[in-house]
Amino acid sequence: MSGMKARTTMKDIARAAGVSSVTVHKAIYSKKGVSSETREKILRLAEAMDYSVNAAASSLKRGALHIAVVLQSVSNPVNYFFRSMWAGIDKVERDLLDYRVRITRFECGDDWVSQEKILASIAERKDIDGVVIQCWDETRLNGVIDRLYDQGIPVVTANSDAVGSKRIACVSGPNERIGRLAAELLRAFLPGGGKIVMVGGRPGVEIHNAHRRGFRAFMEETGYSFPIAEVDGDGDPGRVRNDFSRALDGIEDGGGVYAISSRDTLLACREIQERGIDDRVRLVGSDVFRELVPFFEQGILRATVWKNQQAQAERAVLALYRYLTGRQAEWEPIGIGVVLRNNLEDYL
Rank of each mutant, 00 (worst) to 15 (best):
M4G: 07
T9W: 04
K11C: 04
A14C: 09
A16H: 06
S21A: 14
S21H: 08
V22M: 13
H25M: 08
K26P: 06
I28S: 08
K31V: 03
K31I: 05
G33R: 12
G33C: 12
V34C: 04
S35T: 15
S36K: 13
T38W: 09
E40K: 13
L43P: 11
E47Y: 08
D50R: 15
N54W: 13
A57M: 13
S59F: 01
S59A: 12
L60T: 02
K61T: 14
K61N: 08
G63K: 15
L65N: 00
H66V: 00
I67Y: 00
V69P: 01
P77G: 01
F82Q: 02
R83L: 11
W86S: 12
I89W: 07
K91Q: 15
K91L: 14
V92P: 00
V92N: 00
E93K: 01
L97V: 09
L97G: 03
L97W: 02
Y99P: 00
T104I: 08
T104Y: 02
F106V: 07
C108G: 12
W112I: 06
L119V: 10
L119T: 10
A120N: 12
I122M: 05
I122K: 03
E124Q: 13
R125F: 00
D127A: 01
I128Q: 01
D129H: 01
G130M: 00
G130L: 00
V132R: 01
I133S: 04
E138M: 08
E138Y: 05
R140F: 11
L141A: 09
N142D: 08
G143Y: 09
V144P: 04
P154L: 01
V155Y: 06
N159W: 03
G164K: 12
I168Q: 03
A169Y: 13
A169M: 13
S172R: 13
E176F: 05
R177N: 11
I178K: 00
R180K: 12
E184L: 13
P191T: 06
G192A: 12
G193H: 05
V197S: 05
V197T: 06
V199H: 08
V199S: 06
G201L: 11
R202Q: 14
E206L: 03
I207N: 06
I207L: 08
A210T: 03
R213A: 09
F215M: 06
R216A: 06
F218A: 14
F218W: 14
E221R: 14
E221D: 14
T222S: 12
T222M: 10
F226I: 02
P227W: 10
P227A: 04
E230G: 04
V231E: 02
G233F: 02
P237R: 10
G238C: 04
V240L: 03
R241L: 14
D243G: 01
F244E: 04
R246A: 14
L248E: 03
G255R: 11
V257I: 13
Y258C: 05
I260C: 06
S261Y: 04
S261C: 09
E271M: 13
Q273E: 14
R280G: 07
D287A: 01
V288W: 03
V288H: 01
R290V: 12
R290K: 13
Q298P: 02
G299E: 07
R302Q: 15
W306E: 10
Q310A: 15
R315I: 07
R315D: 03
A316T: 02
L320R: 00
Y321C: 01
T325G: 00
G326C: 04
W331K: 14
P333T: 09
G335K: 15
V338K: 10
R341P: 06
N343E: 03
Y347P: 04
L348A: 05
